[in-house]
Amino acid sequence: MKGTHLGEFQEIILLTILVLDDDAYGVTIKREINQRVKRSISRGALHTALTRLEEKGFITSEQAEGSPERGGRPKRYYTVSNRGIEAIQEAKALRDQLWSQIPKLRLQHPYAG
């Protein structure tokens, strides 16, 4: 098993899957990220990231029936596992903690220093 570190891209994917709830499969995840994060990603890059996340146990997947526009090919739906939720919460907590420790002055005058 690979390490459990959560990369920035992987974090975005986890969050996107959570946002999409029941409807998270390749095409939707990709489109959601393209629209919301304004970042053009390829299906290939997405595939690699999803594989990694699955290896780490952060997501699980399930095959389902395909639709006609897919030529009847099956889809693979992704859901975030409990470990995955833990991981993003941990990441968030870490950030929040860091944010809270920034001196106020810095935040008011971000370019002062």
């Binding site: 499969y25 390749g26 299906r43 526009e69 897919r70 889809k75």
Partner: peptide
């Protein structure tokens, strides 16, 4: 083992 779903995704996206 990946072809079906990946190609499905590609096709769907192509149509969209």
């Amino acid at each position: 083992e990946l072809f079906e779903e990946l190609h499905g995704d590609l096709m769907e996206e192509f149509h969209l």
